[in-house]
Design a protein around this nucleic acid. Structure first.
Lengths: 206, 206
DNA sequence: CCGAAAACCGTACCGGCGGTACAGGAGCGG
DNA sequence: CCGCTCCTGTACCGCCGGTACGGTTTTCGG
């Protein structure tokens, strides 16, 4: 039981790296089992087919992703009681965390699986959708909280602002990879942070 | 000679749709030739291998992409002499164009090829990088032009703002697909537009 | 209208990959 | 010692990318 989970985890680790590097279709089971050190039969013991591997990969990725956001923004809310300051601090922490990744962000599984949507079944597409909705709920809640204390300079929807966070992160990953400039992603997050700060800044009175 | 180009174009059309839907690795030559109505020999007459197909796809996509931006922003500059108003108008026009796509944005080849970077050779990665740099030059020029006339409320780098345009578009495509909400992409562009407007708004004096 | 180049077609073949089937074995807790 | 988990080994199938190459039709300039 214990050993099975360990092998499964190693297999998922290898698979995640390969899929993020080459895409799902270009990742072969043979190469995964070679690097993990098991046989093909061993692979099919853990996963019925490649699609189930994709599902397990995605679920694990999202879980981990949520955990990271939980940690960062709960730390930020510990450091400041003000919802705006806490959010801005959270963005800063996230940016720093991303900047500290030695080879840049490895890539987002949610993105790779929805840019190749027809390669997967509807269940995976639904998991993907739920992930994006979770991000919306998380950040949307923060923006609504901020709006109870600060009057935005322009009327913007909290959910659209929440989607903007996801947008900047996903887009930043893409542009970062295209440019081969890992710093681009954390920089974009800071630009967005400046926009948010500006949005809720009280209008100066002479 | 004429007919050859026509067949090639049809092949590229079919391939582009398939790659954007399923990813490059999951797109088989067999299915492409079946839909195009040629044989395997015909395919390899036009392209030495699958990688050359990818290169041709990417180059054509980028060319078309540039053409669209040229049209939209030259139209915007015709309608307003002011660089800020022209840029904001361009974003609006782009947003409307994206909103009018019946099934949402079909996906960006630059994004799919850099989320699957290890599946392609360095030449393609370099083409991708040049595309992102062209976007940066295009929008960076516009922001520099704007900054000659307007003082930004916050000190932000023109190139980083330029990358933000690409980021929002690429990220918007991803989030739009994940959520299965085509409207999300044009909406995000408009949110970004509001941010830009706010950034260059003269500070109100009482 | 002719000839040559362009634009394919047909066929045969190779190795790799996803997937199936199934038999069996090592290790380990009860 | 039984039974369960966690695999290994072997054999096989059909699809796919790619090669090779001879043949055929279409097109267009001269």
């Amino acid at each position: 039981m214990r050993k099975g989970e360990e092998t499964r985890t190693r297999l998922l680790d290898v698979a995640e790296a390969a899929v993020l590097a080459k895409g799902f279709g270009a990742t072969s089971i043979d190469e995964l089992i070679a690097e993990t050190g098991i046989t093909k039969s061993g692979f099919f013991y853990h996963f019925r087919d490649k699609n189930e591997l994709a599902k397990a990969l995605l679920e694990r990725y999202i879980e981990n992703d949520e955990r990271i956001y939980d940690e960062i923004f709960s730390r930020a809310h510990e450091l400041s009681d003000d919802p705006l300051q806490a959010f801005l601090l959270g963005l800063k922490l996230l940016s720093e965390l991303l900047a500290d990744l030695p080879n840049g962000h490895p890539g987002c599984l949610v993105a790779t699986m929805c840019t190749q949507e027809r390669a997967f079944d509807r269940e995976i597409q639904e998991i993907n959708r739920q992930a994006a909705l979770m991000w919306r709920r998380r950040f949307g809640g923060m923006f609504r909280d901020i709006m109870r204390h600060y009057r935005p300079r322009e009327a913007l929807d909290a959910d659209q602002l929440a989607d903007m966070v996801s947008t900047v992160i996903e887009g930043g990953i893409v542009i970062s990879k295209a440019l081969k400039e890992p710093k681009s992603l954390p920089d974009q997050l800071l630009v967005f942070r400046t926009f948010v700060r500006m949005l809720f800044q009280p209008i100066a009175q002479a």
